[in-house]
Simulated scan of single mutants.
Amino acid sequence: MMITYFFGYFFSLIIFLFVRSHFLLCLLGLEYLLLYSFFFIFGFMGYFDFDYYFLVIYLVFGVCDGVLGLSLLVFLIRNSSSDYLDSLTLC
C-alpha cells in the first residue's frame, strides 16, 4: 500500500516539474502532491496509532493553498487575459 503512495507522490512531483506552461496545470499538480502526501501521512499515523488532529490542520492548510492559488489564477487571467506562465514579466 505504501508503495502506491510513494509512486503517486513522485508521479505528482514529476507532473509539477514538467508541466510549466499553464498556471492551472501547475496548481493541479500541487493539489495532487498535497493529496498523496495526505494519504501517506494518514497511513503512517494509522500504522503507529497516532492521533489524527494533525491531519485536520494539514487539510485546512491545503484548502487555503488551493483558494490562494485559484485567486491568483483569477487575478492573472483578469490582468493578462491568459494563464500562460511564459507571458509573465516580474519587472
Rank of each mutant, 00 (worst) to 15 (best):
M1D: 03
M1W: 03
M2W: 01
I3R: 03
T4E: 08
Y5E: 04
F6N: 12
F6T: 08
F7P: 00
F7V: 10
F7L: 09
G8F: 02
G8W: 01
Y9D: 04
F10A: 05
F11S: 00
F11E: 00
S12V: 06
S12R: 04
L13V: 01
I14S: 08
I15F: 11
I15G: 13
I15S: 13
I15D: 05
I15R: 04
L17D: 00
L17A: 10
R20N: 07
R20A: 07
R20I: 01
R20Q: 04
R20K: 12
R20D: 11
R20H: 01
S21I: 06
H22I: 00
H22A: 01
F23W: 08
L24I: 13
L24S: 11
L25F: 09
C26N: 02
L27D: 05
L27W: 13
L28Q: 00
G29M: 04
G29Q: 06
L30G: 10
L30T: 12
E31V: 14
Y32M: 15
Y32S: 15
Y32A: 09
Y32F: 15
L33Y: 05
L34T: 11
L35E: 02
Y36W: 14
Y36P: 08
F38D: 09
F39I: 10
F39K: 05
F40T: 06
F40H: 12
I41S: 05
F44Q: 03
M45Q: 02
M45A: 12
Y47A: 06
F48Q: 05
F48C: 09
F50G: 13
F50R: 15
D51F: 06
D51Q: 13
Y53Q: 09
Y53C: 03
F54W: 08
F54T: 12
F54Y: 13
L55M: 14
L55V: 06
L55S: 08
V56S: 09
V56A: 11
I57Y: 12
I57T: 02
Y58L: 08
Y58E: 00
Y58Q: 01
Y58T: 07
L59C: 15
L59I: 13
L59F: 07
V60S: 13
F61E: 08
G62K: 01
G62C: 09
V63Y: 08
V63D: 10
V63M: 12
V63P: 11
C64A: 14
C64S: 08
D65N: 14
D65W: 08
V67E: 00
V67W: 05
L68Y: 12
G69E: 13
G69T: 01
L72C: 09
L72E: 10
L73I: 00
L73C: 09
L73M: 06
L73N: 01
V74Y: 15
V74F: 15
F75L: 07
L76P: 03
I77V: 12
I77K: 11
I77D: 14
R78M: 06
N79D: 13
S80V: 08
S81H: 15
S81T: 14
S82K: 11
S82D: 11
D83N: 06
D83F: 05
D83R: 02
D83M: 04
Y84P: 00
Y84K: 12
L85F: 06
D86W: 02
S87R: 01
S87I: 09
S87V: 14
S87N: 13
S87L: 06
L88M: 15
T89M: 07
C91H: 11
C91T: 07
C91A: 14
